[in-house]
């Protein structure tokens, strides 16, 4: 997958090629959904925002210009959608009360043992708590970086300088590590998982 391919697919969709959109959607649907789910911590809200983001992509197909990567374009829309949602939720005083057990929606592995599943749930709960405790800007930068975007792209999406984005990311990582350090000691390193991530 190359960025040019994404831009080209979007242009083809703007000319009426539905298959191009299907390809584009299949490439980005999961990462975008995870980003929104982590941000909102509510699957129902994530579903709404996910649909809203793609609706805006569809509507803006005629105005799309491949000046930047399509991923930057997509996540900028998602970022703005989330900010709008965050403002609406703040007005309704629902920002802290909308969480659900979204990790329960994850498909479980057959190889997972019950004890392992319980440990995972514990780590996930701590991780979510630490993530929620982050300031919104730092959380956003962190989630965007986890989604695979570069610091340059994150700076573009947040309309800040690259150093600012990097600084926010540094603070977010430090806070999360501080929260999750005891858990890290409890879990031995998984070499296979590290190789899978390209380490």
């Amino acid at each position: 997958m190359t960025p040019d391919d994404d831009g080209d697919l979007m242009l083809r969709y703007a000319r009426g090629d539905m298959r191009a959109f299907e390809t584009l959607y299949s490439r980005h649907r999961a990462a975008l959904y995870r980003y929104l789910a982590r941000h909102t911590r509510n699957l129902e809200t994530a579903n709404d925002l996910f649909q809203e983001v793609w609706s805006k992509v569809i509507v803006s197909r005629d105005r799309y210009e491949p000046r930047a990567q399509f991923r930057t374009f997509l996540y900028r829309i998602a970022h703005n959608c989330f900010i709008d949602h965050y403002r609406r939720a703040a007005v309704r005083h629902e920002s802290n009360g909308g969480e659900d057990g979204w990790e329960s929606a994850l498909p479980g592995s057959d190889q997972d043992r019950p004890d392992t599943r319980a440990e995972q749930a514990q780590i996930t709960a701590q991780y979510r708590a630490a993530l929620a405790a982050l300031p919104a800007e730092q959380r956003d930068v962190f989630l965007l970086y986890e989604s695979g975007l570069s610091l340059d792209e994150i700076a573009t999406i947040n309309a800040v300088g690259m150093e600012t984005a990097k600084s926010r990311l540094r603070y977010a990582v430090a806070k999360l590590r501080a929260t999750l350090a005891p858990m890290a000691e409890a879990f031995p390193p998984n070499v296979a998982a590290m190789q899978e991530r390209g380490a």
Partner: peptide
Amino acid sequence: TVLPHGVSVDDKLEPPHALDEQVLRKA
């Protein structure tokens, strides 16, 4: 990732099939 090695929180999280259909139908 900041999670301990081998721990993943939501790597398998994906949008529901109905949501996919809805987006594709809109497109």
